[in-house]
Amino acid sequence: MNTPRNRQQQSRRQDQDSTRRSDRSYAPRPSPSSVPSVQQVTRGAAVSIVLKEDQPTGREVQGTVQDLLTRGNHPRGIKVRLTDGRVGRVQKMSGAAQSAPQVAQAPVSAPTNYRREGAALPSTRDVRFDEYEAPPVRTFFDFLPAEMRNESTLPTNTTPTAKCPICGEFEGDEVAVSRHVDEHLS
């Protein structure tokens, strides 16, 4: 009467586990020495791969390598993209290496350093590769309204000029004249 409610019988649980394991056939993982290394797997090589969804069963598909997606060696195989777009881990090399079929492509208008090998073209353009045209040189006069562009209507510098009271020869604004007068007096 004091037994916990969530307690199950052990024998029944063991029976369920054994039937569950026998329902699926799990493929044994390959040993690290049996999968090809990065040096062996190259672009254009014919390989057998295991797709992600086929990892529990170990079903292999064949194809030609388009891109290497793993940088170094991996214990379960190097991840590659095949020419048909499928992605999986290489389990073994399939016979002699085949060259990847060359597909005729339209010339790309972008510079060659515009894209990485195997990557799609970016959706935006890089303006650093465009021809540079310097903007035209403009002055403040170019931004004036049309009615003010006539030289007769432009405001002029209307500071009052004064003459030196001592010599009568020097002309300038009041500050300049006062300094000139100081030179006479000193």
Rank of each mutant, 00 (worst) to 15 (best):
R89G: 04
R76T: 02
Q10E: 07
S31Y: 07
R138T: 15
F143N: 04
N150G: 14
R12C: 06
R138D: 00
Q62V: 10
V47Q: 14
C164T: 01
Q40N: 02
P107F: 04
E169A: 15
A146Y: 03
L144Q: 08
G77Y: 00
G118Q: 00
Q98S: 04
A106I: 07
C164D: 09
R115A: 12
G88C: 09
T3D: 11
P101S: 12
H184N: 14
N73V: 03
P56N: 11
P36T: 09
V35Y: 03
S37N: 09
G72K: 10
D142N: 12
R7L: 14
G63T: 04
A120D: 08
V47T: 15
H180I: 13
V41C: 05
Y114K: 11
V177P: 05
A176Q: 12
R24S: 13
R20Q: 14
C164A: 02
T64S: 04
L121N: 12
D54W: 02
S18W: 03
V50W: 04
F129S: 13
Y26R: 14
R29T: 04
V38M: 04
F129L: 05
C164Q: 00
S152H: 08
Q91A: 11
E183C: 08
H184S: 14
Y132F: 12
R86C: 08
V181H: 07
M93Q: 10
D130Y: 09
L144E: 06
S34M: 13
E133N: 10
V103F: 05
T64Y: 05
